[in-house]
């Protein structure tokens, strides 16, 4: 059985946790740990794919990622971004500086637009190399989070309260960005799509707002991705998610990443029909000793084995300055090479 087949069986509830999977969220770290300049990685699909393949081979985890960074969509839509030295870019100027300036977003073609084109290129190269052995995971930023980048989070939240119709209309536009980009990734070889939607976390908006505005869009997006050929719909909302996770299944989510701020056991109880991935604290990969990470992994696997399905992963992206030994140990624990 390939990893993807195991994952599909897991989310369908056909396979219990006898054959563990390990997928730490290694994005830009794939470049940094090999001494590749992050901007080169983010600007060039060939370099991105090469780094992803080498990192996966080195650490032995179970997926590769076609993902740039969380400003990529906003940049394509006209936001000015800044690349700090060997770090991720960030938006320096939103495209909608005030509520009155909201207008239709520019049309774009994901196959030719900015750095999106490079991620799609990376996706195709990854697929060509890994075939069906391990999944190529394409990642898109969710509609609420893109909207937050376009306006600035505070302005977006004011819009939500003051002019909910305009908020909904803006999200409908960013929904299409997410949909078109996700579909392009699937067509280029991604068999799984992660929607990253940090702005929908309970830390930012109350659960009732998630249910009213965000959940319907996620449901529609995952439905599109499924029709396009995605085998697994993966949702990643960082931060606290305890009161929204019970609604994930209705959104079409098969697999959810949970952050370190929530308890795996509690999430399993709250969403028993969902497969979960998580939730090593990213900062611990920098600071903790390898044996402590190993212990955390073992504990998580013990808890996760009692649920519908569990993937050992990080609660959020692996930090750029993580200790490589702490990534390696995750795979070793899963393979039973530690605590045997």
């Amino acid at each position: 059985m390939t990893v993807l087949q195991k994952m599909i069986a897991m989310v369908e509830g056909k396979k219990k946790h006898t054959d563990c999977i390990c997928i730490p969220l290694v994005f830009g770290y794939a470049a940094i740990f090999q001494g590749v300049w992050l901007k080169d990685y983010l600007d060039n699909g060939e370099i991105m794919a090469d780094c992803q393949l080498r990192a996966q081979k080195h650490f032995g985890y179970d997926a590769v990622f076609a993902y740039g960074d969380n400003s990529l969509e906003a940049e394509v839509l006209g936001c000015k971004t800044y690349f700090p030295e060997n770090d991720y870019p960030y938006v320096t100027r939103p495209v909608f500086s005030s509520l009155s300036k909201i207008k239709d977003l520019p049309l774009f073609d994901p196959y030719t637009a900015g750095r999106m084109r490079e991620v799609i290129k990376a996706c195709a190269i990854l697929k060509e190399n890994v075939k069906d052995d391990i999944p190529v995971v394409g990642c898109v930023v969710g509609p609420t989070s893109i909207a937050g980048q376009l306006m600035g989070l505070d302005q977006l939240l004011y819009l939500l309260v003051d002019e909910p119709d305009k908020f909904r209309s803006l999200l409908r536009q960013t929904f299409h960005v997410c949909k078109d980009y996700g579909k392009a990734l699937i067509r280029s070889g991604a068999s799984i799509i992660i929607i990253m939607e940090p702005t929908a976390s309970q830390n930012i908006i109350p659960p009732r707002i998630f249910r009213k505005f965000v959940a319907p869009l996620l449901k529609e997006l995952f439905s599109h991705f499924r029709l396009e050929g995605a085998k697994i719909n993966w949702l990643m909302i960082t931060g606290r998610t305890k009161y929204i996770i019970p609604y994930y299944k209705d959104c079409g989510v098969d697999l959810a990443t949970i952050d370190y701020e929530v308890s795996l056991k509690e999430c399993m109880d709250l969403a028993p029909d969902l497969a979960l991935a998580g939730n090593i604290k990213p900062f611990d990969l920098i600071n903790l000793k390898t044996e402590d990470i190993a212990k955390q992994c073992k504990d998580l696997l013990d808890i996760g084995s009692k649920g519908k399905g569990f993937i050992l992963s990080t609660g959020c992206e692996v930090p750029l300055n993580a200790n490589p030994a702490n990534i390696s140990i995750m795979g070793k624990v899963v393979k039973g090479e530690v605590f045997a």
């Binding site: 004011y158 109350p206 009161y243």
Partner: peptide, 14 residues
């Protein structure tokens, strides 16, 4: 507590 969210604090601040 678990119910904290930025939106409500932001609105109170405004």
């Amino acid at each position: 507590n678990d119910h904290f969210n930025l939106l409500e604090i932001l609105l109170a601040g405004r």
